[in-house]
């Protein structure tokens, strides 16, 4: 017990001595420089002021206007490029619209031409049909007339022959005492009666 306590006492004493020594050295050191980290150091303040003043002057007078000018130039350039592109686009749009309009015109024109051609063809067809009909009708009418004329002519000859034949036949049958004038009149009357009778006489 006494041994350990003596040892501890020696140890603590040595530690205290060390601490005191350290304390004196550390208290000595701040005493010569007194570094309160919050107070601004005058030399640093001076150097900082000089550097920032120089920086502010350089920036204000030279560097900043240069950058701003460059940015402005780029902005202007981009804007003008965009404007130009917009103009070109509008122009192209106009040309496109013009082309489309012309195309539409051409299409209506061709449609119109086709329609006209179709109408003309239709007209032509109708004309031809009508003319053919007329010709057919004319042809038929003429042939009918021809037929009728032939019929009339045949009928007239037939009548004359029948009359002569009948009188000759009758003369042979009844002899020569008959009055020719009277017989002719009689036969004519009979033929007229025959003709007045409906069909079958021709």
């Amino acid at each position: 017990m006494s041994y350990t306590s003596a040892l501890l006492a020696a140890g603590s004493r040595a530690a205290a001595a060390l601490y005191a020594q350290a304390a004196t050295t550390t208290t000595e050191a701040p005493a010569q420089q007194a570094p309160n980290p919050i107070l601004p150091s005058s030399t640093e303040l001076l150097w900082g002021t000089v550097s920032f003043a120089v920086l502010a002057f350089l920036m204000w007078k030279f560097a900043f206007p240069l950058v701003i000018k460059a940015m402005q130039a780029r902005t202007d350039k981009i804007r003008s490029n965009l404007d130009e592109a917009e103009n070109v686009r509008q122009e192209a749009q106009g040309i496109l619209e013009e082309y489309q309009r012309q195309l539409a015109d051409a299409r209506t024109e061709s449609n119109r031409i086709i329609e006209e051609a179709r109408q003309a063809a239709d007209q032509l067809r109708q004309d031809m049909v009508r003319r053919a009909d007329e010709e057919v009708a004319e042809l038929r009418r003429r042939s009918i007339e021809d037929l009728k004329a032939a019929q009339d002519r045949v009928m007239g000859q037939l009548r004359l022959q029948v009359r002569d034949l009948a009188i000759e036949l009758a003369e042979k049958v009844v002899g020569a005492n008959l009055d020719r004038e009277r017989n002719l009149a009689l036969v004519d009357q009979m033929i007229a009666e025959l003709e007045a009778r409906p069909a079958g006489g021709g």
Binding site: L46, G48, F52, L55, L58, F62
Partner: peptide
């Protein structure tokens, strides 16, 4: 005189900033 690390950093900051802007401009 009095030119320590802090002052050096201030000067460097000035040089870098101005240099950046001049280079860009």
């Amino acid at each position: 005189p009095g030119f320590n690390k802090v002052a050096l950093i201030c000067v460097l900051a000035t040089v870098f900033t101005a240099g950046l802007f001049f280079w860009a401009g």
